[in-house]
Amino acid sequence: MKEYGIFDILGPIMVGPSSSHTAGANRIGNMSRIIMGRPFKKVKFYLHGSFAKTSVGHGTDKALLAGVMGLRPDDERLPSSFELAKKAGIQFEFIEKDLGYQHPNTAKVEFHLEDNTIFYVIGSSVGGGNILITNINGTEVEFSGNNPTILIRNKDTKGVIAHISTVLSIAEVNIATMSVVRKDNIATMVIEIDSYIDENLIEKINTSEDIVYIAGINPIEG
């Protein structure tokens, strides 16, 4: 059972109107941006279920777009994200789409990069501003981002996991949970740890040549 703190009850401070449709949507945008981790020129949001139906009345669209630009759920500029994106030269589009068997509050965030490649993340807003990231570029994952999370994609060869655990144990980092999904000789690892992630730790893990992608994601406050 979750042990609540005072500020889970008197908080978060957020831009309204809805913790799931606004704050949660914003977190999906933010998390997608961090996972992708590169500049982009265009972003398409596919809205599923209740996100599609009541997006306008809840500002879900504005909150998502604000998220991919790095504005947090309590940022008062959130309602003006359309204008901010236009000023920053970011193209954006919202498309209602049935994404299949998904939580009703789900969005697919599709980034179009400078080199015309596409990177996408699917996330659901599961209540109280909490989210779950469920898919990254076709690989199914599941993490909330409530804990510091390290995301790794590596060639599925021996020794990578050992390398990672060694780096973490030398850095005295506690692993809370760890999961691995394998697909087409690429392993996707989601490691939740107990302490904040710094760049240094990520660089040390990234010394293995078999790692093709790595991101350290600290919880999105606000």
């Binding site: 009850i9 008197l10 908080g11 978060p12 401070i13 957020m14 831009v15 309204g16 109107p17 809805s18 913790s19 606004t22 704050a23 500002g59 504005k62 309590d74 008062e76 959130l78 309602p79 109280g128 501003g129």
Partner: peptide
């Protein structure tokens, strides 16, 4: 809250 202003969820928005 309904105008996308800043509030404190206490306990919810």
């Amino acid at each position: 809250n309904a105008c996308m202003g800043r509030i404190v969820a206490a306990p919810t928005a």
